[in-house]
């Protein structure tokens, strides 16, 4: 009996190793949004995610703003063919109310405010754990909007505080795209299935294991 159990354990470990070998390691992903306004407002913001499901580092410089905080959001779509309407609402895959980036209940797209100095330049670098460059919270292909006023993070008591943070009209927009130069992940289709040989081996391992399990009863 004991050797059989040992063999079972060995086979389970072997299959686990094979499964992990079949899925490639996560490679760092990088994205950029180039913000443009009809006026003087312009800037670049990069989004870098080093690990799958890990935080995304947001680094940017936006100039041409008025001094002070400006609401900074990601919308569900990146379609600006009919302006603000076609970008949909704030990116909100969890169906939450509007909030600030540090609130438990917030839209994934609620990135708070960016702070412009007295020359109208906002320089910022912070990380966010709710947005991602993979999976259901993937921000690629969505629009980024910089607002004229401060996002009250849902606390202002205005009619639109809980939806848009009462951040006023928009001063610049852009769509999040894959950053150049491209990382190796983005050269591929992104989802590789385990190779045929792995599947075959796993099937054999499973078959032996079930035979052994049946015998040991």
């Amino acid at each position: 009996m004991a050797p059989k159990i040992m063999l079972l354990i060995t086979l389970s470990v072997a299959s686990a190793v094979l499964v992990s070998a079949a899925s490639p390691p996560f490679q760092e992903r990088k994205a950029i949004v180039v913000l443009k306004g009809p006026g003087q407002v312009s800037g670049n913001v990069t989004f870098i995610q080093a690990n799958r499901g890990g935080p995304v580092m947001i680094t940017g410089v936006v100039s041409g703003l008025t001094e002070g905080p400006h609401g900074f959001h990601i919308h569900e779509k990146g379609d600006v063919t009919n302006g603000c309407i076609s970008t949909g609402s704030h990116f909100n895959p969890q169906g939450n109310k509007h909030g600030g980036p540090n609130d438990e209940s917030r839209h994934a797209g609620d990135l708070g405010n960016i702070q412009a100095d007295n020359t109208g330049v906002a320089q910022f670098s912070y990380s966010d754990s709710l947005i991602s460059l993979v999976g259901a919270h993937n921000i690629l292909g969505r629009a980024v909007v910089v607002h004229a006023d401060t996002d009250d993070m849902g606390r202002g008591g205005f009619t639109d505080s809980l939806t848009t943070g009462h951040a006023g009209s928009r001063v610049a927009c852009g769509v999040i795209g894959i950053l150049d130069p491209i990382t190796p992940w983005d050269k591929s289709a992104g989802h590789r299935s385990p190779s045929t040989s792995h599947v075959l081996l796993l099937t054999v391992v499973a078959a032996i294991a079930s035979v052994l399990a049946a015998n040991s009863i």
Partner: peptide, 21 residues
């Protein structure tokens, strides 16, 4: 940039919440 857009009946937004357009 190739951006996400709405599928059928996905976006019923008729007014821009932030400025009323």
């Amino acid at each position: 940039i190739i951006a996400r857009s709405s599928g059928l009946f996905e976006n019923n937004k008729k007014i821009c919440a932030c400025d009323g357009v």
